[in-house]
Design a protein around this nucleic acid. Sequence first.
DNA 1: TTTTGAGTTGTTCGA
DNA 2: GTCGAACAACTCAAA
Length: 407
Amino acid sequence: MPALHWFRRDLRICDNPALAAAGPDAVGVFIRDPRLRGVGAARTEYLDEALRELGEQRPLVVRAGDPASALLDLAAEYGATDVYCTGDTTPFARRRDGEVADALAAAGITLHTVDTPYAIPPGEVLNGSGSAYRVFTPFYKAWLARGWPAPADPVVETPAVARWRRFRDEALGAYKRDRDFPALAATSRLSAALHFGQIHPRTILAETPDAATDPFARQLAWREFCADVLWHQPQAVWSSLDPRFDTDMRYDDDDAMFEAWRQGRTGYPFVDAGMRQLAAEGWMHNRLRMVTASFLIKDLHQPWQRGAAWFMQHLVDADVANNQLGWQWVAGCGTDAAPYFRIFNPVTQGRRFDPDGDYIRRYVPELADVPDPHEPGVLAPDYPAPVVDHARERDEALARFQALPAR
DNA sequence: TTTTGAGTTGTTCGA
DNA sequence: GTCGAACAACTCAAA
């Protein structure tokens, strides 16, 4: 009798310990879950393509509906008594998998969870007192010291693996220097492939020379840190880790301002370019994720949750751990004691990281012929004037921060 | 228990 | 233009 392998965020056939444990005759299944709301078309389309690719490599049964009922049906069809899957550690997935395991167990079927989408499973890197790290750098050191397993078997060059290897060969050397310049193709663009497990981080780490000091590997450690924080504090999906930000901070909820931000019509060209890249491509350069998030929070004084929800709906790589923790970091309510005065200046950021304005012109065509597209003002007839004055709103953000009660 | 050093990605001001 | 200091006070992690 074959076992089932329930694919979720491990859409690959090599270096997949759960799939291997399911055995050579395992029936691979993917179940579209209609409860998964909040992610948008870009991610769904990416998933469709990933499933198509996977289906070319091995037979794949795709169903839709409640995972527990679908798995019970499939187990009956194939006479399976064991279901294997790679663990997923988000709060939603943990709850779902618990319910599925119970439902299967009631029918005499065992759900086996093997491996995770991380080099080190969330929850396993602990400090000297046996508790979770809340600051990145000590986590990173401990994560490096603990080390990670090598890939379980050789990795076939799927499109995701080929993308990684091309990035490694052609761009990894310049990554540290170029990664913050959004007009350049200097980043790996592997975020969605990592999210869906088309490539596992241990593959990347195994194929990275000097991973312990490599700046790209360090970014992978950030991904692991976010997952670890969320593992220990699942409420961080929608609650500020510093509760004062949900109970005492004064926010604005001006819908027109939020709309200007969403549409990329704030009158701050660097911000608008980022938001329009998101709308056009379902992806935004990380530098712009920080700049646009800072603008919504610190210039428009809106709660981070509102922006995080928008990002989740539009990012092809929408990942609840990376996204929510990243927003909390910008908001200053996250785990690290970020200085409250860290407020991105959208003009300075643009001048520093897009000095020639190429990125701005690519996504804000109204400014294609403007000599200096950085300075907000009346730049073009069909481009909006700045919706706020940054210097003034910076002071306002500082005042609201200082009005918070002491912790 | 107490102490000490450090804390992703920043900005502004003044020398 | 460049550079260093200042920007709260706090929390974390380890000694």
